[in-house]
Design a protein around this nucleic acid. Structure first.
Lengths: 127, 127
DNA sequence: CGGTATCCTGCAAGATACTG
DNA sequence: CAGTATCTTGCAGGATACCG
């Protein structure tokens, strides 16, 4: 039935492009940026202040990637001096719900996960 | 109101441990492994066959990490020769819903995202 | 079969300096 | 203010060989 013969396993194949997309929008700093921009539009240095641990370079890269994927919009306000504002897009807003579901899961199960980690680290202290 | 004075911004602080957890359970190969183990218990080499692109080393690392976080269980079946089976845990099953929501988002908005990428890549061809 | 043990490489990401 | 340009480094992850 598949026109590509010997396809490995459909589930995994289907997964791949989504996996790549998640790498783009859920990477190290994206959640923090998205979280911030959902509150309000931000200037570049607003974001730096809100996320102290991020470097200029990484923040720029994160914003460009999010912009490229259409979840964030870069607005240049022509004033003196020029101001740049980042905003969440309508597409970006649709990402909020899935992320919230994920964070809710993390919050709910964190205690259980920490117990699992403690158990594992105790049983396998070192080889 | 916060008992920690000068906390940077609560949202981001709260985010950090969750961010770390997601790095553990949503990393490069975890989705594929989880997806597979939700279907059925698998032996090590079953997983290798189901996910051809993963190396032995990465698969081992992924399974150990998932096991440590309590979402996967490693069961040694004492037979001749010894067999090892990996199973999803009850905790692991609770991860399925959030992940499905995320994948549904990806599937639903993929076309829009691809348009955004095309637009971006055209407007910013190269510097 | 189900892994370790090594070696190696690319590249994500930090530090730092400079710019329109 | 909002970046770009370099340089450097840690380390995730691949390749390969070996083991109980």
């Amino acid at each position: 039935m598949p026109d590509t013969p010997n396809a490995p396993y459909e589930g995994i194949v289907i997964l791949a492009p989504h996996r790549e997309l998640l790498d783009q929008v859920l990477d190290k700093w994206s959640l923090a940026v998205l979280n911030e921009l959902c509150e309000r539009p931000c200037r570049f240095n607003d974001l730096r202040r809100a996320i102290p641990a991020v470097t200029q370079k990484s923040l720029t890269a994160t914003l460009r990637r999010l912009e490229r994927n259409g979840v964030v919009e870069r607005v240049v306000v022509s004033s003196r001096p020029v101001a740049v504002e980042y905003r969440i897009t309508p597409l970006g807003k649709t990402l909020r719900h899935p992320v919230d579901v994920l964070l809710a899961w993390a919050a709910e199960h964190m205690p259980e996960i920490e117990r699992a980690r403690a158990r594992f680290d105790e049983d396998v202290p070192a080889h």
